[in-house]
Amino acid sequence: MRPFDYTRAQDSAEAARIAGQGATFIAGGTNLLDLMKLEVMTPDHLVDITHLDLNEITQTEAGGLRIGALVTNSDLAADMAVRRGWPLLPKALLSGATGQLRNKATTGGNLLQRTRCYYFYDPDMPCNKREPGSGCAAMGGMNRLHAILGASDACIATHPSDMAVALRALGAHVDLMAEDGSTRTLPLGDLYRLPGDTPEVETNLKPGELITHVVLPAPVHGRQIYRKVRDRASYAFALVSVAAVIDVESGVISQAKLAFGGIAPMPWRMTEIEDFLIGKAPSEDLWEEAADLLLSDARGQGSNDFKIPLARRTLAAVLNEATRGDDQ
């Protein structure tokens, strides 16, 4: 870990201002410190935002929720309003990490966690994300964790969050505050960037810009499922995950929101699939066609080739489960 200065910010404006001068935010620290110890990340100034007033969950006028960026993953998963209205979110949160980590990790930090690519984590290995232009060791190396969608010739890393996948399916937005105190709101999907030629740039945040809140729209009708497929029963990153909110009325799908984890550089959502499903009757053939839409551009890298059939099968199983039964 490189030496750094440490400042504890008293309010959001101060935090954004200091960060605008080049400092890095620290909240839960569960990923940042992990990476700083390996000198994968080497900030020279940390601004501690844990004392900011961003740890409340409040109702919005639209019937949704406004979640402070500092609300811990544990508190978010335990919140009764969240559990009742958006059960997809606690399901995703609780499938990630551990009790200890969720007690520290925050809503904002979870969104901004870095990839778990083995080579990104090893400063002696080439990695375009860590050291632009050095190459990608995961291509031609081990890439079990890596992306089949949205990757580029420069980077095939995945985004590891479960929470972000659920939020993407739920149509969440993020509230941001800039260095000058101005605010803006982005759909979660617009927070992230695909790697392209610049995998080191992962988000559309401006320098110093702070995530202050995540906003959930009002609950939608439908069965909510988060299915995470991984190498251990617990405490492992997703190989494939599917977040779904599906409703069936009069024998046809009336609501479909889908997002995917473990397969792309960002929580993946394709509204084409959702539009395709709406108004159709559930069937195995329909799931196949939905999977075709999802995976038409999918490309394996060797040790992650299995994710293509796995994503297909998992999507079908989730859609089956979501449309099964007589309570629709």
């Binding site: 778990r116 083995y118 964790l145 190498d231 251990r232 029963a233 617990s234 405490y235 492992a236 990153f237």
Partner: peptide, 9 residues
């Protein structure tokens, strides 16, 4: 994280 010892579950 990536050498997977069995966990309790």
């Amino acid at each position: 994280a990536e050498y997977h010892l069995p966990v309790n579950l």
